[in-house]
C-alpha cells in the first residue's frame, strides 16, 4: 500500500513541476540537435540531387543505405534501418545491457558523457524542488539546488561508476564466460539462448538496482544535507536493504509504466506518415512527447522515491 501511496504522491508532485520537465526536454533536444544537424547535412549531401531523395521521402532506399554505410564515418555509422521505431529503443536497450555503448562513435560517447554530467548537475535541482514540494518552478531555485549538490552528486556518480564497472567486469564478465563455455559444449543453440536472456536480465537488474540505490543516496544527501558522500552511499544501501520490498516495488512499478509508455509510442509512431513536411512535424511533435514522457517518468521516480524515503524514515 505504501508503494502505491508514494507512487501517486510522486505523480502529483511531478505534475506541479511541468516547467522543469519542459526545461529538461529542451536540454535533451538541444544536446541532441548539436549532433543531429551534422547528420542532417550528411544525409542531405548523400541524397544530393539524385532520385534517392524522392525514394527516401516515400520509404527507405536500401540500395542507397548500403552505399552510405560502406563509406560511413563517425556519426554516419549509427544511421541504420534499425533506428526506425522499435529499433531505436532496442538498439539502446541492448547497447546499455551489453555495454555496446563503447562501440558508438567517439563523438557520441563524448556527448553522452557530458550529458550524464549535466544530468548529475540537474539532479540536484530536481530533488531540491521535490524536497521543498514547491508548487511552482523557478529557474533560480532549480539552479541553486543544482549547484549546491553538484559536487556531492558528482562524487556519488563516480562511486556508482566503480560499482557499474565491477558489475561489468566481474558479473557480466563471468556470465559471458559461462555463456561462452556453454555455447562451446551445448547440443543446440536453444539452451545458451535462454541462459543468455537470463544473464542479460541479471545484468539489467543489477544496473537498475545500483541506479535505484544511488537514487536513494542522492535523496539522502538532499534530505539530510549530508556532507559525506560515502556515508550517504552506504546509508542508501542500508536503507534499500531494510526496505527491499517497498523500494524495489516502487521502482519496478515505475519501470512498468515506462515499458507500457514506450510500447504505446512504438505502436503509434509507425502510423504517422512522414512523406510531407506536415507529417514530419507531427512525427517530431509525437517524438518530443515521448521524450517528455520519459523525462516525466524519471522525475516521477525521483519524487516517489523521495516520498517513500520520508514515509519509511
Amino acid at each position: 500500500m505504501k508503494v502505491f501511496i508514494n507512487f501517486f504522491k510522486g505523480f502529483q508532485n511531478t505534475g506541479r513541476l511541468m516547467r522543469m520537465i519542459i526545461l529538461l526536454l529542451v536540454v535533451n533536444l538541444a544536446f541532441s540537435l548539436i549532433l543531429a544537424i551534422p547528420m542532417y547535412h550528411s544525409l542531405k549531401d548523400s541524397f544530393g540531387n539524385s532520385l534517392v531523395g524522392e525514394r527516401m521521402a516515400e520509404g527507405f532506399d536500401y540500395l542507397w543505405w548500403e552505399e552510405y554505410r560502406d563509406d560511413a564515418q563517425g556519426l554516419e555509422r549509427t544511421f541504420t534501418p534499425s533506428i526506425i521505431g522499435k529499433g531505436a529503443i532496442l538498439n539502446n536497450l541492448e547497447g546499455l545491457i551489453q555495454l555496446r555503448v563503447f562501440d558508438l562513435p567517439p563523438i557520441i560517447l563524448i556527448y553522452g558523457f557530458l550529458y550524464i554530467i549535466l544530468h548529475t548537475f540537474f539532479a540536484g535541482g530536481i530533488l531540491s524542488l521535490f524536497k521543498k514540494r514547491e508548487a511552482k518552478f523557478s529557474l533560480g531555485s532549480f539552479f541553486r539546488g543544482a549547484g549546491s549538490y553538484f559536487f556531492r552528486f558528482f562524487l556519488l556518480m563516480l562511486i556508482s561508476w566503480v560499482i557499474f564497472l565491477m558489475i561489468d567486469q566481474v558479473v557480466k564478465g563471468s556470465l559471458d564466460s559461462i555463456l561462452s563455455g556453454m555455447r562451446e559444449t551445448a547440443i543446440s543453440e536453444v539452451t545458451p539462448f535462454y541462459w543468455g536472456l537470463v544473464f542479460n536480465a541479471v545484468v539489467f537488474f543489477l544496473f537498475l538496482f545500483i541506479q535505484m540505490v544511488f537514487d536513494y543516496g542522492r535523496i539522502k544527501i538532499v534530505e539530510e544535507d549530508s556532507p559525506n558522500v560515502l556515508t550517504s552511499a552506504a546509508g542508501a544501501f542500508g536503507f534499500v536493504g531494510r526496505h527491499l520490498g517497498s523500494t524495489l516495488g516502487l521502482f519496478y512499478l515505475l519501470f512498468l509504466v515506462q515499458v507500457v509508455f514506450t510500447l504505446i509510442y512504438v505502436l503509434i509512431q509507425g502510423l504517422i506518415s512522414q512523406s510531407s513536411f506536415l507529417g514530419i512535424a507531427l512525427a517530431f511533435l509525437f517524438q518530443q512527447i515521448f521524450i517528455f514522457g520519459l523525462i516525466w517518468i524519471r522525475c516521477w521516480l525521483y519524487s516517489s522515491q523521495m516520498e517513500l524515503y520520508r514515509y519509511l524514515k
Binding site: N28, L29, A36, M39, T78, A88, Q274, F290
Partner: peptide
C-alpha cells in the same frame, strides 16, 4: 528526425 529520436532516447 528519425535519427534524432534515437539519439534523444539514447541520451535519456
Amino acid at each position: 528526425s528519425q535519427w534524432l529520436i534515437w539519439l534523444q532516447h539514447a541520451m535519456e
